[in-house]
Write a protein that binds this DNA or RNA. Structure first.
Lengths: 344, 344
DNA sequence: TTGTAAGCGTTATCAG
DNA sequence: CTGATAACGCTTACAA
């Protein structure tokens, strides 16, 4: 049997053992000046020998931060499994946090209200030094909250929704244009975009870019609204492809809907990319593994997470708010896009 | 502009405002006896009006726990995106934690050493009240660590690897048997299992179950070792299917390899399930969306996470260690399994 | 360079 | 039932 609860070792124990004061121990451990080289070495040795780590509660109570940042996942738990985004994002955040031995506190909030409450509670109880905000919508209550309570925060999304908070954005307009131009270069003259709900800031941006890119080259274009779900994508694709002169190029706002469209096209007796070409957002393993593999717009989410965390640490350190741009998503061309079919 | 840093409201403020002592405020807030109904109401009202939340650092320093449990993800960040398991598991854990307003601290550790260090640091600094251990291997250093330092922990995995700690296991043997019997009932007489590395405890269990189930019905069977990666699965499948009399039933230890095998079979001119039937572990969206959809063994990971967290809270509360069984994975029959081809 | 001591905001003890 | 008051373990002036 193991000892049930061995005596806790505190800074006082270390000080006594190293024959110095608690102040010196504190200074030594935090690598601050004001301690002789000799004392510092002695303290560090003793601390290591005793296996002492400062109690985080005591430390943050005494004024240091909590050494933790918060991330609320505002999704239905069932959807989280479907989207690899968050897991990659989290891994990226950790890549920034771990070396500075900061922690990541997570919460899965089923509703917007729960989300706001989680952030408020975290901040009021000083459990976190700052928060990361993803999936920001227009007039997002979370943005208003963090501004109101003055919590350090970084908005992962367009600056237009950040209300002056530090934001980290990707150029979805440029990416959308890339996708349209790819289809046009293959000869497609009629394309349809299957868009996310209009409340997401990026939807508006992608919609506009899609319109202008299409108009610039003078092709027929249309936008269909979806809710990003598998069924929604399948239904919309079926409807769009069932008309007399269906579009030959389809652009989806996520990978799941694009895969659903693949099946829908197959069911309608259409070949991909023979009859219809498909492009997806959110490149993922799914895009690579389905047959035919999907041409997709994607970016390095791991890097995005790392970048976001870095910016948040800056904000916590008092750096002035600003808008930062992350890498633009790139188009990975695969088997689902090909030359447009000849008009009958 | 918002106020930069409004004055912090403490328990003393609430006590003064409610014309009582801090002790009563503390009792009232925590719903403990020893406060008159009148005082309790007054305190709660003032607390709400002032928007006061107790500082978590002060609370845990004063003896309460940290109100946090820890989870270390011991995977290469790149792999995390591929596996929906963790995200679902986390969502489940949260489902248990959130109602008790407990937090989840996360760390993505690239190496086993980093993982052990994270747990040790968390425990020594009392940042977490307990930890959840997943992906346990034989003689897992994490298991030894938590036993040594006496940290409350729950092993998500077979009791044989838990060294007496509380564990939560699923009956992989029974599930494996189900899969084998499914194939046998379809007439398959030669089946191959594509297994995870032998260091995982579940590999040994599944191997044994596969052997005995196959022997029980007297069919040819073989086990091929893989590393669970896409490439590993593709290579192994290609090799196995290229021999003169290939097996007609394939059983994979995860979904990704099964999908890879689908492609491999296609490349070899074999039809699924016409020539070869495929069964996967770890049912996922991927299994449902590929063509043909994959018959798979799967379980409710969300529920598993919730269950694991519940057990950990029990351990933290001092409940004696024990082994608990979670629901047995079930076989979801889809399009990738069918009658065995007639022997030539 | 060192040591002393005053907070930090709760909880818990123990007299009133 | 109520209200002082002593921990809890650390950081940080401030003195020596």
């Amino acid at each position: 049997m193991t000892s049930t609860s061995r005596p806790r070792v505190t800074i006082a124990d270390v000080a006594r053992e190293a024959q110095t004061s608690t102040a010196s121990v504190s200074y030594a451990l935090n690598g601050r000046p004001g301690v002789s080289l000799d004392t510092r070495a002695r303290v560090l040795a003793v601390a290591a020998r005793l296996g002492w780590s400062p109690a985080s509660a005591a430390r943050s109570l005494a004024g240091a931060g909590s050494g933790t940042i918060g991330l609320v996942l505002a999704r239905d738990p069932r959807d989280l499994a479907v989207e690899p985004f968050y897991m990659q994002f989290i891994a990226g955040v950790e890549a920034t946090l771990a070396p500075r031995s900061m922690g990541l506190l997570l919460e899965v909030a089923p509703t917007a209200v729960a989300e706001v409450e989680a952030i408020r509670r975290w901040h009021m109880s000083r459990r976190v030094d700052g928060v990361l905000l993803t999936d920001v919508i227009a007039d997002d209550p979370r943005v208003e909250l963090v501004k109101e309570i003055g919590a350090p925060a970084v908005v992962v999304g367009d600056p237009s929704e950040a209300a002056g908070l530090t934001s980290l954005w990707t150029d979805d307009a440029a990416a959308t244009q890339q996708a349209v131009e790819h289809l046009v270069s293959l000869g497609h003259r009629r394309i349809t975009r299957f868009a996310a709900p209009g409340r997401y800031a990026y939807t508006v941006i992608r919609d506009a870019a899609f319109e202008s890119a299409s108009q610039a080259v003078g092709i027929e274009h249309d936008i269909v609204r979806t809710d990003l779900s598998l069924d929604s994508g399948a239904d919309a694709a079926r409807t769009v492809l069932s008309v007399s002169r269906p579009p030959s190029g389809l652009l989806f706002d996520n990978d799941v809907m694009a895969v659903a469209a693949l099946t829908a096209a197959h069911d309608l007796g259409l070949s991909v990319p023979g009859d219809v070409s498909i492009v997806a957002w959110d490149d993922s393993l799914l895009c690579q593994l389905v047959t035919p593999s999907l041409t997709a717009l994607g970016h390095d989410v791991l890097a995005l997470g790392a970048h976001a965390a870095r910016r948040l640490l800056d904000v916590i350190d008092g750096v002035e708010p600003a808008a930062f741009q992350d890498a633009t998503p790139t188009l990975r061309v695969r088997a689902s896009t090909g030359p447009a079919p000849v008009e009958t």
